[in-house]
């Protein structure tokens, strides 16, 4: 009985969900393209920084999937989000009036790597090697810009056909790290990954260069960005969006920047992502039939 009481006390003491309903809580989220713990660490710092700059309580909530981030944004559960190129486009279509306000300096020149297992014997080339045709191929997550959208765009450009026609099998690994693991183990012969994730994996020694290597680098495109809801000023007072944008662009804390990793943030607008949107439309990922 005593133990049960103690257990009960423990349960109560650790219970969460204390919601302050008095004034609107400024909350943001980010697409889960990394290890959960890393995301919480990175965006916890951002939340602290923004709280201090904006003089409001800022909270980061982690989500499990790309659509969960978009839904949270659409439902006003979050007012700001760190989206990828495609998820940002989807979110802005779902919430009219919302705007891309800042992107990382490096996000202006993002790229994807095509990687292949050594046993395929495919050599690196200037264009996407024709030898990838007929192999098994894996994307990353279905809604990822660097793991799905742009690789698919360049596959269609090179072969004039949908990936399902070009490759003997097309899979979705769900995550960049898994794409590396699956191609490295030879489960898939070829894959497409976010260049930043690949380079980090190489630096950490997680990549066995005898098994897997980069065979092609895509041209550069715009990727990640901070997107804010259009009604933010109504919710938090006039001029809030301005203040928020300035605060994001002014981040110079090395610890925060390194955690992304970005060298600094630069301003962005919706037009920067027009090409991404057109690509998504062209390959039927947005509602066009």
């Amino acid at each position: 009985m005593r133990y049960l009481t103690a257990l009960l006390a423990l349960l109560v003491s650790t219970s969460g969900f204390a919601v302050d309903t008095q004034r609107p809580q400024f909350t943001f989220t980010a697409i889960p393209d990394q290890n959960e713990a890393e995301l919480v660490r990175r965006f916890g710092q951002v939340a602290d920084y923004l709280s201090e700059q904006l003089k409001v309580d800022v909270e980061y909530i982690p989500v499990k999937s790309y659509p969960a981030a978009i839904t949270a944004f659409r439902n006003n559960q979050v007012q700001l989000a760190w989206f990828g190129g495609l998820s940002g486009v989807q979110a802005r279509r779902a919430v009219p009036g919302s705007e891309a306000i800042a992107q990382g300096y490096e996000d202006q020149f993002f790229k994807s790597y095509f990687i292949a297992h050594k046993s395929t014997g495919i050599e690196a080339g200037d264009g996407l090697p024709q030898a990838v045709a007929g192999r098994t191929f894996t994307f990353g997550s279905k809604g990822s810009t660097s793991g799905r959208l742009m690789p698919e765009f360049y596959i269609r450009e090179a072969f004039g056909e949908a990936p399902e026609e070009v490759f003997s099998r097309v899979g979705f690994s769900g995550d960049h790290s898994r794409t590396v693991a699956l191609v490295q183990s030879g489960a898939f012969e070829v894959g497409a990954v976010n260049y930043a994730v690949w380079e980090k994996a190489v630096a950490n020694g997680d990549v066995d260069a005898d098994q897997v290597s980069v065979i092609w680098t895509t041209p550069e495109y715009a990727d990640y960005q901070w997107t804010v809801r259009g009604d933010i000023d109504q919710q938090f007072g006039a001029g809030f969006k301005e203040k928020l944008t300035r605060a994001l662009l002014a981040i110079d804390d090395k610890a925060i920047l390194d955690s992304f990793p970005r060298s600094r943030f630069v301003s962005a607008d919706n037009d920067v992502y027009r090409a991404i949107e057109q690509t998504a439309q062209a390959i039927g990922l947005l509602d066009d039939f």
Partner: peptide, 29 residues
């Protein structure tokens, strides 16, 4: 269609015998 699963399996086996709770608060939650 398997080629070189050894590396990943080795990592899995190693992980299995070295269980680690990174963040005990998160785990309890």
């Amino acid at each position: 269609s398997t080629r070189s699963p050894g590396h990943e399996l080795w990592l899995m086996a190693k992980g299995l015998v070295t269980p680690r709770i990174e963040d005990s608060h998160q785990w309890l939650d």
